[in-house]
Amino acid sequence: MVLFGTIVNGLAIIIGAWLGMKFKKFSTEMKDTVMKAIGLAVVVLGINMALKGEEFLIVIFSLALGGVLGEKWNIEGKLNEMGQAIERKMKRNTEGKIAEGFVAATLLFVVGAMAIIGAIDSGLRQDHSVLLTKSVLDGFSSIVFAATMGIGVMFSAVPVILYQGAIALSATFIVQFIPQQFIDSFISEVTAVGGIMIIAIGLNILGIPKIRVANLLPAILITILFVIGKILWFS
């Protein structure tokens, strides 16, 4: 089921928000410990994915060139600006904490490399491990958010399902029109590139100096070009 990981992610947010509304007392120490535990699990998942690559030179060059393009285009900065603009607009046009919780949670759960990589992984190879890990992270975060911002956090599950579901279904649709030889090579290298980005996300969660993971997203497109070149060169 292509949308399994996406649906679980949405349910995790809803359940987490419900729990947050019921139990509002979470110590800073508890939050820190749980988040670091999740961060360690994310790093292990990323390592497992990174080791699936067959051509590590493709992975290295894709990440390097992708990082150059991402920094030049300032993808992370633009995503942050977009989020801030949406938040300002919502605060002007609505009242109360419902909108505040909805916007803040949506930006946290949707804007990020993990949502994109996980959805692509679900669509390409029916592997939902990234989105299931993200579900745990989002579920716990929604508990904390709902405890402080209210029920609006629960409604952020809707854009998460629509956004990740659209990416996963698009990946599945594309696979139907691409030769199997390309798909196999593409999946292994994109998984490796995505795995390294997942490791970076895990390190960010652990509080290690911030890595601008969104600026590495062009590496996925560059990986596709490298795989196409490799197949054409050796065919």
Rank of each mutant, 00 (worst) to 15 (best):
L107C: 06
R125Q: 12
H128D: 07
F145N: 03
D138S: 09
I86F: 12
L169M: 10
E95T: 15
L124P: 08
R88I: 12
P159H: 04
F182E: 05
L162E: 08
V153Q: 04
L169Q: 09
V158Q: 03
G112W: 01
F177G: 09
G152E: 01
Y163C: 05
A166F: 12
S185G: 15
I120T: 04
I178Q: 07
F109M: 07
S135H: 01
S170P: 03
E87M: 12
N93P: 06
Y163R: 03
Y163S: 05
S170E: 05
Q181I: 15
V130H: 01
S135L: 03
I98H: 09
K91D: 13
S141G: 10
I86E: 09
T172F: 13
A105G: 03
I187F: 01
D121H: 14
A115H: 07
A166V: 11
W73D: 11
K78H: 13
P159V: 07
Q181E: 14
H128I: 04
E81Y: 13
F155N: 02
I116Q: 08
L108C: 11
T106M: 05
V130P: 00
M149F: 09
A113K: 03
A119K: 02
Q164W: 03
G165D: 01
H128E: 03
I116K: 05
G112F: 02
Q180D: 11
I187K: 02
K78Y: 15
I151L: 13
A166H: 08
M90I: 15
M154K: 05
M149V: 02
G112C: 06
G83L: 02
T148K: 13
V153F: 01
R88A: 15
G96C: 08
A105K: 00
I174G: 04
V130Q: 00
I86Y: 09
A166K: 08
L107M: 10
N93I: 15
A119I: 06
G123P: 01
G77N: 06
E76C: 04
V111S: 08
N80G: 13
F173D: 13
